[in-house]
């Protein structure tokens, strides 16, 4: 069905991958409307890059009929469940991995 989305603002620019596997990152604590793929429960929290998934069109643009280009680096970020939920009771080692686009991340230097 994606072929039916009108393509506008075709851009060939490549957005560089800014974070490497193992690097600590923080999810921006932004509050904004629109079609976001960054769940609220991880905003403002820190995790570690688990893998770089590649570049994908920006869903926040795609949802409104734009091309979503240039494609943005997408990461899997690993969070400790206790980081996301300070009162998490179940087991200290449990973790949650979430796909997050680069523009939602910033380096966390501790």
């Amino acid at each position: 069905m994606s072929a039916t989305v009108p393509i506008r603002n075709q851009v060939s620019e490549t957005v560089p991958v800014r974070y490497q596997v193992g690097e600590r990152v923080r999810v921006r604590h932004a509050v904004s409307g629109g079609h976001l793929r960054t769940p609220h429960y991880c905003r403002g929290h820190t995790g570690v890059i688990e893998r770089v998934c590649g570049r994908f069109p920006n869903p926040e643009e795609l949802a409104f009929g734009h091309s979503g280009l240039p494609s943005l680096p997408l990461y899997r970020v690993r969070f400790r469940s206790r980081e996301l939920w300070p009162d998490y009771q179940e087991s200290e080692n449990d973790m949650i991995e979430i796909e997050i686009f680069q523009h939602w991340l910033e380096a966390d230097h501790g």
Partner: peptide
């Protein structure tokens, strides 16, 4: 058992 780590994967985007 508590010794088994749980990894929850949230498919939020393209994977």
């Amino acid at each position: 058992p508590p010794a088994v780590t749980i990894r929850v994967h949230d498919s939020t985007a393209d994977m």
